[in-house]
Design a protein around this nucleic acid. Structure first.
Length: 364
DNA sequence: TACGCGTGGTG
DNA sequence: TCACCAAGCGT
């Protein structure tokens, strides 16, 4: 059955040549005057643009900045990144999220060095073939670092385009790529692509777009129609509640950590002993059971402060437990007693860092 | 195509 | 408090 959910593209969706020309000129002019000074814009070498684009995937500029600077300091070029251990790379990434990005970044560096002398490829297809690089990132690197005429489409650009073109319904992904290809000035791809994203980030924002100071307000169909903020239309998403049991076991000032082979956690990172719960009510009973499994002894779990942790599509309620009395020696290899202070130096996700802080605050 | 992946900011 | 969002990719 044919789905009517997506709106078909019609020739009328494209800006006519005159409006397109006005749009390009005003956007580029605005960008030259208003672009933010960012470290990867100072000297846009392929390597620096690459790192920035990976870090910026689903992550805001302000969040990325400190990580970017620290990362470049430690790994200034492809050989230094390739020579590093994965743990070292993850250590610098810890806190940024989406840890698969860091692993694939590292894998790509090892493909490029020493086999390809650490030289970042120039051909779009070769860039796209690298781990962690999809159509957006390949287009971004080729256009920004090499000024190749490659379109890009990201969240900002989708929003700018549907407003500019006054698209109310849902369109397919290829619609956006077609529009960007049509608008792209072949000799100014670097500036144009960045200008589109900059406009989306600074002016054509999701809430309360600043239409009064928008350089392309004169050619915007959403503004013509009256209420630009109503575009794009939003559809509800659900985020499921999850209950997670976490154990904070101590012995002689050390805490028990496990190297996580478990799916859903940072690869190669350390975790506190934990288990997903069927419901909130089973927390204490499961805590006792997990302690017994780990230590081989029946030790009463002591409730510590609960806290919540939000991840995309999930609201996690963390049920934190300590133990009364000294847990016996742990048999299983995955577990290790680690000095509390040194525990923080290990790769830990924010959730477990929060758990350590909550435990410390409770005097555990 | 739809989902999972982490975290911090925003209203 | 909470849903939504942010320079996406891999499966």
């Amino acid at each position: 059955m044919k789905r009517l959910y997506f709106r078909e593209t019609s020739p009328a969706d494209y800006l006519d040549p005159r409006r397109a020309s006005v749009f390009r000129r005003r956007l580029l002019s605005w960008y030259l005057d208003n672009r933010r000074a960012l470290p990867w814009r100072d000297t846009p070498t392929p390597y620096r643009v690459w790192i920035s684009e990976i870090m910026l995937q689903q992550t805001q500029v302000g969040t990325v900045l400190p990580y970017y600077n620290r990362f470049l300091e430690r790994f200034p070029d492809i050989p230094s990144l390739a020579r590093a251990s994965e743990t070292d790379v993850l250590q610098r990434w810890a806190g940024l999220g989406y840890y698969g990005r860091a692993r694939r970044l590292h894998q790509a560096a090892r493909i490029l060095w020493p086999a390809r002398q650490g030289k970042f490829p120039e051909e779009y297809e070769a860039v796209l073939a690298l781990p962690g690089i999809g159509p957006y990132t390949a287009g971004a690197i080729c256009s920004i670092a090499y000024n190749q005429p490659r379109p890009v489409v990201d969240g900002n650009i989708r929003r700018v385009l549907v407003r500019l073109l006054g698209i109310g319904g849902k369109v397919r992904e290829r619609f956006f790529w077609g529009q960007m290809s049509a608008l792209l000035p072949p000799n100014q791809a670097s500036s144009f692509n960045q200008a589109m994203m900059e406009l989306g980030a600074l002016v054509c924002t999701p809430h309360r777009p600043q239409c009064s100071s928008c350089p392309v307000a004169g050619v915007c169909r959403a503004l013509e129609s009256g209420n630009p903020a109503r575009i794009p239309v939003k559809h509800p998403r659900s985020s499921r509640p999850v209950h997670l049991l976490v154990l904070l076991l101590e012995k002689d000032g050390r805490i028990l950590l496990a190297s996580s082979g478990k799916p859903g956690f940072i690869p190669g990172a350390w975790v506190l002993p934990c288990r997903v719960l069927a419901d909130a009510g089973s927390a204490e009973g499961e805590a006792a059971r997990l302690i017994r499994e780990i230590t081989g002894r029946a030790i009463r779990p002591v409730p510590l402060p609960q806290f919540r942790h939000a991840i995309t599509h999930r609201r996690i309620t963390v049920h934190l437990f300590g133990s009364a009395g000294e847990p016996a020696t742990v048999k299983e290899e995955d577990y290790r007693w680690v000095d509390r202070r040194r525990g923080k130096e290990r790769v830990l996700s924010s959730l477990f860092r929060k758990a350590l802080e909550a435990g410390a605050k409770a005097g555990a």
